[in-house]
């Protein structure tokens, strides 16, 4: 068998994955092969170093920051139901207007070039918002208004 094969066995041996017969074969080879003997030292050093690498501690403020962000989110979600109903109509109007505008500019492009143009990322995000609106229980959140510029 080739030395490269035994090299793999060196790792398996460290993890106790070799059968008794394989171990015997490996050690018999090590007796006669200086190259694999050196590899054994390298593998052992690599294995030990890898398994003793210093462990880092996550900075404590990460958990605190996540907690704060989750609290902010839950406050955002706690908008009164009447406000959601009042706000939904103008939001829908805004989206419809934007889609109308997008359709107009796209069709004028088609007229000029004679080919349908690929929607720009901005257009795609509008389509995405439209799809979100089709979700039955959808209701706008503050972040939605901020994203769409509705509050400005």
């Amino acid at each position: 068998m080739k030395c490269t094969h035994y090299e793999r066995w060196l790792w398996d041996d460290l993890e106790g994955r070799l059968s008794a017969a394989q171990r015997q074969e490996l050690y018999a080879h090590l007796q006669v092969c200086a190259r694999c003997q050196r590899q054994r030292d390298t593998v052992l050093t690599t294995y030990r170093t890898l398994h003793a690498l210093p462990r880092r501690r996550a900075p404590e403020h990460v958990v605190q920051q996540v907690r704060t962000r989750l609290q902010e989110r839950s406050q955002t979600r706690a908008i009164p139901a009447w406000w959601k109903r009042v706000a939904l109509a103008p939001a829908l109007g805004l989206v419809a207007a934007a889609m109308w505008w997008g359709w107009l500019s796209m069709s004028s492009n088609e007229e000029r070039t004679g080919v349908a143009t690929k929607p720009s990322p901005a257009e795609e995000s509008w389509v995405e918002i439209h799809e979100q609106l089709e979700v039955a229980d959808w209701s706008p959140t503050v972040s939605y208004f901020i994203k769409t510029g509705y509050t400005r």
Binding site: R55, R56, R57, A58, P59, V62, V63, V66, R67, L70
Partner: peptide, 15 residues
């Protein structure tokens, strides 16, 4: 409860 989960896994994931 979620904070406890974060504390359990923060170091491992960060590492």
């Amino acid at each position: 409860a979620f904070e406890q989960i974060m504390n359990l896994y923060a170091d491992r994931l960060y590492n």
